[in-house]
Design a protein around this nucleic acid. Structure first.
Length: 137
DNA sequence: GCCAACGTTGGC
DNA sequence: GCCAACGTTGGC
C-alpha cells in the first residue's frame, strides 16, 4: 500500500472540513499541476495519505484514505485534469509540525521539505512509519 | 503581508 | 524551442 501527502490551506479547506464530509469523503479537485496529477494517477483505492495544513498551521494533522482512483476532475472543462476522492481516516494523536519534520534527519528527503510547492506528494513507507511513530509517541 | 521559488504562458 | 514575463504558492 502506497502513501501520499495532501496539502491544503486550513482557511480554504481544512482537516475539519474533510472530517465533516464523513464516509462519503471529498473529490480532491482543482489541482492544476502536472506533477501532482501524475502522482494522483498512481493512487489506488485503499492507499493512505497525510493531510497537511499549509500557510497557516504548517503541520500534518491527520491521515486520509483514497476512496476513488484518479478520474476526470468535474470542475475542469478541458478534460486535462484529474482528481481522486479521499476521506478523513484518523486525526494524529499529536500533529507533526514542519519544524519537527525538518529537524528529523530521517525525514530530510520528504518532498514536503524538498519541493514544498507540490500540492500532492508521494511519501515513502519509511517516512510514513517515522511520522506515525512520532505522532503516536 | 512580503517575497523567493517555482510553474506556466506566449512572443519571437 | 528558448526564455522573459507573469501568476501562484507557501514559508516566514
Amino acid at each position: 500500500m502506497a502513501h501520499y501527502l495532501f496539502k491544503s490551506e486550513p482557511d480554504v479547506f481544512g482537516w475539519d472540513d474533510l472530517v465533516a464530509k464523513g464516509e462519503a469523503g471529498e473529490e480532491w479537485d482543482g489541482v492544476r499541476n502536472y506533477q501532482a496529477r501524475n502522482v494522483m494517477r498512481g493512487m489506488e483505492v485503499g492507499d493512505t495519505g497525510f493531510f497537511y495544513h499549509s500557510r497557516s498551521g504548517l503541520e500534518i494533522v491527520g491521515t486520509v484514505e483514497i476512496i476513488a482512483a484518479a478520474h476526470p476532475d468535474s470542475t475542469d472543462d478541458s478534460g486535462k485534469w484529474e482528481c481522486v476522492d479521499i476521506r478523513a481516516a484518523d486525526p494524529l494523536l499529536r500533529p507533526i509540525s514542519l519544524d519537527q519534520i525538518k529537524a528529523d534527519p530521517r525525514l530530510a528527503d520528504m518532498v514536503l521539505v524538498k519541493n514544498s510547492r507540490l500540492s500532492v506528494q508521494p511519501v515513502t513507507d519509511a517516512q510514513w512509519d517515522v511520522v506515525m511513530s512520532l505522532a503516536e509517541a
